[in-house]
Design a protein around this nucleic acid. Structure first.
Length: 996
RNA sequence: GCCGGAGUGGCGGAACUGGCAGACGCGCCGGACUCAAAAUCCGGUUCUCGCAAGAGAGUGUGGGUUCGAUUCCCUCCUCCGGCACCA
């Protein structure tokens, strides 16, 4: 038999697994279920990179192990295939995105199958498949049909809201006027309900990205640029679909506590949700019948308020509104700087509003200096009737709280800065010390003790807050309030490649959902899918698609629509929604579709959902980049489905692990100045450094810290580098320090590793093993081709240790019932038999130990140490002449989750079983705890914590005897001479410490 | 600035719950096999001093708790990630 040939056997076994449907899963109530899920990929044109198989290998190991351990495992894969990159590429190459998507999926599937993952491919899903997205549309309609009951903190069907309106239990909103529900006509009723639905439309300032030709959610905008492509994003008002995720803020926050997720990720979601407790306080506007309400988290500082600030877009300063509080002329006795060069407050406000509107999000972030304008109006502080000037400034955001604040410059850095630039008074109302009035420098933001505040003087900040809230509520001047940073989810996109909304617009401006029987609403096959260059989506060009006639069925106040041929009696004209859903829609619920992927009656049958989703997905592995996108959105959808009784668990993903990024191989950068001299990395100004790509190789342009002259950084041959102390230097000139680090893989750097190439050279098993051997799953770690070589050698050695090398013979022996030994059918002679018996004894304990180690390490997802343990065991095998069959089968069995192809091959060659039988059908081996420890232990002996000697004792040796032997040990005795042992400490089986 | 996480050989990393620091792999050095090379096998490899036996130091820094600290506590430094005018 030839040696280990990964290329041959991997294809063979992959074929066998497919032919015999080895990994097909079905409900089996006799077994506990285990749902192990990967974040499904976006099938990009580039194909897989080595980062993808990292998480996929981890879950595959768990899936294979859990099956062997007696679980019924669900382990599926699919495609998140709607979205911008394919569409951008489609526009560039003038190919239909469906064509590109199909090609990319085929490529991804082939690549994944070449790695030998044990997915149940019968359950493959594709978000762009009409049979899939009909249910995405259906779930959207559930959101549309749901309203949030604040009292119950629960989403409920719209019919229940209608019933409450009809019976009068729930008052109609003010917009309905004085009429009762039945006095409203159908159109008015629809309008009222639209204000309650979880899916609603609103005209609001949104993130418009001109380069992509679409709006984006807050979560998709990073530093004022689009997450996809990095194009600038501007704010502009547009009518868009929103989902009321804000209503679920508290439940999304509370739910985190029960989840086994990385703490950092929970923290990111908590920050994003951004709960803060405080109070709403009402300030009357002086000499007017108007009120401004502010939100504050520091009601205890109310006496320190010296002015009020409104966001420039605040309704009270909308100059064309009757409620505008800006007077026509400046009040008397105001400082000149409040007035500036403006002749009237209106002019000042208008001018500032224009400046603020012109500032982009990015400019706001970069320049945080405080500017603003005096409105000429005053508000009255409700606790002391003081008149406070009202300003507008863009450091107050309309989107948060009430868009208005009370400014307490003594205890808020931003208010402090603004007060300084506008010459406003600063009044201390908190002292850092209970016994002093003026402890701590201003602005003092940290908690302390209230001063200069009649009702609360002396109270610690927390108590002062509570007391002030109680006072405000008692006098009806304000209320306790909880605010969230999270905004409603902007859910529509002006793109072609997404799910169409199953909604039509009637001529009265109201919306009506399509009847369920009308789903899926297919994306029209258009040739022109390009953005229009205006704010109109591409689907607006598909006139024959969006102009329809419908008949309405059901209650006129909340009907559903059937699209019918023109001229059908009772039909009315309508227009389909021409926006499409964002990429996140399909991924919000795909884990549910895997459970029942071919169901044509329902998104997922209830009994199947109940079985597989009991307690949620058991293990979910994916990148941290989805922390506040997919992971928040799908929790939200899941909670809505839960409220509507469509799923049985309140949280979708019980345990979640983020795999760490895989970086390119380590690189060394040497810096050269313009005059050709080399410069130490320490001399470079990191603030100034920028990376530039040129013909696949990346350079760094930077400048010298002290001289400011231009410096270029280039990659340097690792052979020319050595380490001196904490830094890497050039061997040729140790005065020149280098920059040493690994970089994120990218095309422009030219450091991308393609898994296909690794498989071609070393096989899929080596790829899988190395991905796991590199280090802990969660950690960021650099790729190393030499490291792949290492695990490849391990597999070859294991092969040789069991089956022999090129010309070698099998070393695996069996003991017959008669007690004799055979090797490959040949009976061993007396000398050989003695060796076989000796080897069997020698390897017994290591066998049990390696089973235990691998079992425990898989359970805690410590795959790197599990692999080291198998390598150690393999090294032990190499020292033997013969390997007992039992040990051979055990090591092959526990290797299978990591390297399934070679394990399958070795199993068949060793056990000689039928080709259709898979090693995966063998149960996981058990280990005997008693056989995991050695009979003889070597106990280190310390004197005052320093190692002095060792003693060998039997494992069950009593303490007194161990100590006796320790003191008697010659090395120890020498050091103990003329010293008295004060204390003897023995940690059973571990060590001895003698204190002298 | 705020909130997380992490600093261990030349490199990736290991060390259970406070108990022999450096498992395993890479790299490097030496040897065997070979006409030679590759592959393979054997041995060595934290640093400093020493021919050696051995001695000393050592888990980012400085301190503390403890018989004993990579592990727990405090200080500072560096790196990575997230958030950032959120009242």
């Amino acid at each position: 038999m030839a040696g280990y040939q990964p290329g041959d056997c991997e294809k063979k076994w992959q074929q066998m697994w497919r032919d015999h449907r080895i990994f097909t899963s079905d409900i089996d109530v006799s077994k506990p279920k285990f749902y192990v899920l990967d974040m499904f990929p976006y099938p990009s044109g580039e194909g897989l990179h080595v980062g993808h198989p990292e998480g996929y290998t981890a879950t595959d190991i768990v899936a294979r192990y859990k099956r062997a351990a007696g679980f019924n495992v669900l382990h599926p894969m699919g495609w998140d295939a709607f979205g911008l990159p394919a569409e951008q590429y489609a526009i560039k190459t003038d190919t239909h995105p469906a064509v590109i998507t199909r090609k990319n999926i085929d490529r991804f599937r082939a690549q994944l199958q070449a790695i030998g993952f044990s997915y149940d491919w019968q359950r493959e899903v594709n978000t762009t498949d009409p049979e899939y997205y009909r249910w995405t549309q259906w779930i959207f309609l559930q959101l549309y049909d749901t309203w949030f009951d604040v009292q119950r903190q629960q989403g409920r069907p719209i019919t229940e809201l209608v019933a409450e309106f009809e019976s009068g239990i729930r008052p109609l909103p003010e917009s309905a006027g004085e009429k009762s529900w039945i006095q409203l006509d159908a159109s008015q009723q629809r309008r009222v309900l639209e204000q309650y639905r979880l899916a609603y439309q609103i005209e609001a300032p949104v993130n418009w990205c001109p380069a992509l030709g679409t709006v984006l959610a807050n979560e998709e905008v990073i530093d004022g640029k689009s997450e996809v492509g990095g194009f600038p994003v501007e704010r502009r008002p547009m009518r868009q679909w929103m989902l009321r995720i804000t209503d679920y803020a508290q439940r999304l926050l509370d739910g985190l506590d029960s989840l086994e997720w990385p703490e950092s990720l929970k923290m990111m979601q908590r920050n994003w949700i951004g709960r803060s407790e405080g109070a709403l306080v009402r300030f009357d506007i002086a000499q007017r019948d108007d009120v401004v309400t502010v939100f504050t988290t520091r009601p205890d500082t109310l006496y320190g308020a010296t002015y009020i600030v409104l966001a420039p877009e605040h309704p009270l300063v909308a100059l064309n509104s009757p409620h505008c509080i800006v007077p026509a002329i400046w009040p008397t006795n105001i400082p000149a700087c409040w007035r500036g060069d403006k002749v009237s407050p209106r002019e000042a406000v208008e001018s500032y509003q224009k400046t603020a509107a012109a500032r982009s999000e990015r400019q706001r972030q970069e320049d945080t200096s405080k500017t603003g304008a005096f409105t000429g109006a005053y508000a009255v502080n409700p606790v002391n009737q003081e008149h406070l000037p009202i300003f507008i400034s863009d450091y107050v955001l309309m989107g948060y709280g009430t868009g208005a604040i009370m400014a307490v410059p003594a205890h808020d850095q931003r208010d402090f800065d603004f007060a300084r630039s506008m010459n406003l008074p600063i009044r201390r109302v908190v002292s850092a010390a209970a016994t002093q009035l003026e402890a701590g420098d201003l602005p003092l933001e940290s908690p302390g003790f209230a001063v200069n505040s009649p009702e609360i003087n002396g109270l610690a900040t927390a108590a002062a807050k509570a007391r002030m809230c109680a006072l405000l509520e008692q006098k009806s001047l304000g209320t306790r309030q909880i605010n969230y940073k999270i905004r409603d989810w902007l859910f529509s996109r002006q793109r072609y490649w997404g799910e169409p909304f199953p909604i039509v617009h009637l001529e009265d401006g109201t919306t009506v959902p399509l009847a369920d029987s009308q789903l899926p609403l297919l994306l029209p096959e258009v040739t022109d899918f390009k953005p229009t260059g205006t704010l109109e989506p591409p689907l607006s060009k598909a006139t024959s698609w969006h102009q329809v006639q419908v008949v309405l069925e059901g209650s006129p106040g909340h009907p559903h629509a059937h699209v019918v041929p023109t001229g059908t009696p009772g039909a009315v004209c309508a227009r389909r929604e021409v926006n499409t859903m964002p990429q996140w829609a399909g991924s919000c619920w795909y884990y549910l579709r895997y459970i029942d992927p071919h169901n044509r009656q329902s998104f997922c049958a209830a009994d199947k959902e109940k079985y597989w989703m009991a307690g949620g997905v058991d293990l979910y592995v994916g990148g941290v980049e989805h922390a506040v996108l997919h992971l928040l959105y799908s929790r939200f959808w899941h909670k809505v489905l839960y409220d509507r009784g469509l799923v049985g668990s309140p949280e979708p993903f019980r345990k979640l692990v983020n795999q760490g990024l895989i970086l390119g191989e380590a690189e060394y950068t040497v810096f050269t100045a313009e005059d050709g001299r080399q410069v130490s990395a320490a001399e470079i100004d990191p603030e100034f450094s920028t990376r530039v790509g040129s013909d696949g190789r990346s350079e760094i342009i930077s400048r010298h810290k002290s001289t400011g002259s231009l410096v270029i950084g280039r990659a340097c041959d690792p052979a020319a580098v050595e380490k001196r102390g904490n830094v890497f230097v050039l061997k040729a000139d140790p005065n020149i320090e280098l920059d040493a680090r690994s970089f994120k893989m990218s095309k422009s750097r030219g450091n991308v590793v393609n898994p296909d190439d690794v498989i071609a050279e070393y096989g899929a098993d080596s790829l899988r093993l190395f991905e796991m051997f590199m280090g802990p799953l969660e950690q960021v770690k650099p790729w190393s081709t030499a490291g792949v070589e290492g695990v490849y050698r391990f597999l070859q050695r294991l092969w040789r240790n069991l089956l022999g090398g090129e010309e070698g013979v099998c070393r695996v022996v069996r003991q017959t019932t008669a007690g004799t030994w055979t090797c490959g059918g040949r009976e061993l002679n007396a000398t050989e038999s003695a060796a076989a018996a000796r080897d069997a004894t020698a390897i017994l304990r290591p066998t049990h130990r390696v089973i235990r180690k691998v079992t425990e390490d898989i359970e805690r997802l410590a795959f790197n140490t599990a692999i080291s343990a198998m390598m150690e065991f393999n090294n032990a095998l190499a020292k033997l002449t013969f390997v007992p069959m039992e040990s051979a089968l055990h090591i092959v069995r526990i290797l299978e989750p990591f390297a399934p192809h070679i394990a399958e091959e070795l199993y068949h060659q060793l056990a000689g079983v039928d080709a259709a039988r898979s090693i995966t059908m063998l149960p996981w081996p058990r280990f005997d705890e008693a056989l995991c420890v050695d009979e003889q232990l070597e106990i280190p002996v310390q004197i005052n914590g320093k190692l002095a000697g060792r003693v060998r004792v039997p494992a069950d040796c009593p303490e007194a005897r161990v100590l006796e032997l320790a003191v008697a040990d010659p090395l120890v005795a020498v050091r103990l001479a003329q010293r008295t042992v004060k204390k003897k400490i023995y940690i059973k089986g571990r060590m001895i410490n003698l204190v002298v």
